[in-house]
């Protein structure tokens, strides 16, 4: 548990000092929103409104890919990854620490992006702010769990940055579908759909357990 806190604190401190990852993620997410706005200007037809939750999550996932690519790049300098692997600690907790650090960053980026998205597309998040934050957090958790796990592998391959989305996107469908369904229901003023929430929770749980157990084999001996 101490390892988890130490890794989390270390990552957040480094990020606080440089603010590189969060700024890159945020600017990228905002750019995606602008491009989506220009490519598909908001119309007041039901079809156009039905596509909005999906577009929002596309912006989120793009930002997440960008940020997660850097999650382990930090550790590659001066071979810190080997140091982490050699630490006399449960590697699962190292994984959870890294995941939570990315999670915190992604949450911040999601909040600002949602504001910009709401302004651009005329979506009012204010009445559903709290349940939406919950859905966004559940989605972000799943994205960060799978993303951190795949990032630790992708960093050791030849095409680091290109490999991460190839690895994580095929696995993320349950998370994204659940999150998009739930967001859709919220924006239509409906109650949170139980099944979508269940899907998000179960997927988050399964991915967390499997990645926690598997991370031991990701780091070199």
């Amino acid at each position: 548990m101490n390892v988890l806190r130490a890794v989390l604190w270390k990552d957040l401190l480094i990020e606080w000092r440089s603010r590189e990852r969060s700024v890159a993620m945020l600017v990228f997410a905002l750019l995606v929103v602008v491009i989506l706005y220009l490519a598909a200007p908001p119309a007041d037809t039901p079809e156009a409104r039905a596509a909005l939750p999906g577009m929002l999550w596309v912006a989120y996932i793009f930002a997440a890919v960008l940020g997660l690519n850097r999650a382990f790049a930090l550790e590659l300098d001066e071979d810190a990854l080997t140091g982490l692997a050699l630490a006399p600690a449960d590697r699962g907790f190292i994984f959870l620490g890294k995941t939570l650090a990315s999670f915190v960053l992604l949450l911040g980026v999601q909040a600002v992006t949602a504001l910009a998205f709401g302004l651009a597309f005329g979506v009012n998040f204010a009445p559903v702010a709290l349940p939406f934050a919950g859905v966004a957090a559940l989605g972000a958790l799943g994205i960060c769990v799978v993303g951190t796990f795949c990032s630790a592998m992708a960093i050791r391959t030849r095409y680091r940055e290109a490999m991460l989305p190839l690895l994580m996107l095929p696995l993320l469908l349950p998370i994204l579908l659940g999150a998009v369904r739930a967001t859709d229901a919220l924006l239509n003023g409906e109650a949170l759909p139980g099944l979508a929430l269940q899907l998000l929770l179960v997927s988050d749980g399964v991915f967390t357990i499997v990645c926690y157990l598997g991370f031991d084999a990701v780091l070199d001996e």
Binding site: P170, L171, L177, A196, L199, V202, V210
Partner: peptide, 19 residues
């Protein structure tokens, strides 16, 4: 690891697509 993860995700995907 990735091969195992790929099989683990099948029931989740099934649930997601049904939903």
């Amino acid at each position: 690891l990735y091969g195992i993860l790929g099989l683990v995700v099948v029931p989740l995907n099934r649930f997601a697509i049904e939903l």
